[in-house]
């Protein structure tokens, strides 16, 4: 095994220095769920906006100057290049600082980093999207990407769940996807409230009930580790092979480019070699620290 070749990836280093952030401006903020906000942003440099491209599943390093940097996936689709989006849960110093900002604020962005979803391999396949909580963010980029090229793909299923109705993110997307007869969607919550009339139950159980066929299919799973852990056995039962299950891994990151060290699982760096892996690749890792 040698290091993964990533020379084909598009890079947009500012002034040729990979650590320098580009300035971006927040032009819309959406409250998604308690402590979860989506930020829409654009590059200050119009020329860069024109040439910037990314793949669904890639992420960026976001700066709130004075507070540092953190990685978030780009949750908008490259098929809708008008602006970029990221969805952030408030959990620590940087995310708190980000949540305090309002429209018009300037933040830093470098990227895109990581491998992204293997779009070419997904073409022609039936796709099963399985997401939990804010794990829908990277999948949302892929879902819009697929919907904007609908004819390239087969049957589509989405199983999405959150702890409570309030914790469901992208409610505006869910509403429009629910009405869309081009795919089958199941939304569930672990625990309902007085207004909730939808399904109640954990994502893996609902997935088992929906029972999508494994024939010519690929399942893309994103969510909290506990959900992922219980989802793989269900997919296995439904006949999905480990190559037919794709997920994204999450680790603490700083540099985003495989140098600062902390996101390693054995000999791979999640930021550089991932964050998207199929389940076979995950099982083949030297370490089970995922």
């Amino acid at each position: 095994m040698t290091i993964t070749d990533i020379s084909h990836r598009k890079m947009f280093p500012a002034r040729g220095n990979v650590y320098l952030p580009h300035m971006v401006v927040i032009n819309k903020i959406i409250d998604e769920a308690p402590d979860v906000r989506t930020f829409h942003f654009n590059f200050k440099d119009k020329a860069l906006s024109e040439k910037f491209t990314f793949e669904s599943g890639q992420f960026g390093e976001f700066s709130v100057f004075g507070h540092g940097e953190a990685p978030f996936c780009i949750s908008s689709s490259p098929t809708r290049p008008d602006h970029l989006e990221c969805t952030v849960k408030r959990t620590g110093r940087l995310t708190n600082a980000l949540h305090r900002l309002s429209v018009g604020a300037e933040i830093g962005f470098r990227g895109p980093y990581g491998n992204g979803f293997p779009l070419e391999e997904l073409k022609g396949k039936n796709l099963v999207f399985v997401a939990g909580g804010i794990g829908l963010a990277p999948l949302r980029s892929l879902i819009w990407n697929v919907l904007d090229n609908r004819e390239d793909y087969g049957k589509l299923d989405i199983v999405y769940g959150a702890r409570s109705p309030a914790d469901l993110v992208y409610k505006y997307d869910l509403a429009s996807w629910q009405k869309d007869d081009r795919f089958n969607m199941a939304v569930t919550v672990d625990r309902g409230d007085e207004k909730w009339q939808g399904t109640v139950g954990f994502v893996p159980q609902v997935l088992e009930h929906v029972a999508p066929s494994a024939q010519d299919a690929v399942a893309v799973v994103c969510g909290p580790p506990i959900m992922i852990r219980f989802t793989f056995p269900v997919l296995d039962k439904l006949g999905f092979t480990s190559e037919q299950m794709i997920t994204t891994l999450e680790k603490r990151m700083k540099c985003g480019i495989g140098k600062c060290g902390r996101c390693n699982i054995g000999n791979i760096y999640v930021c550089r070699d991932g964050p998207v892996f199929n389940y076979q690749q995950v099982m083949d890792l030297v370490s089970s620290e995922y």
Partner: peptide
């Protein structure tokens, strides 16, 4: 060993990464 951390320090609108 080459592992590193990246942090900002800023006061009064001036600082560094």
């Amino acid at each position: 060993c080459y592992c590193f951390d990246i942090n900002d320090a800023m006061t009064g609108g001036e600082g560094s990464r």
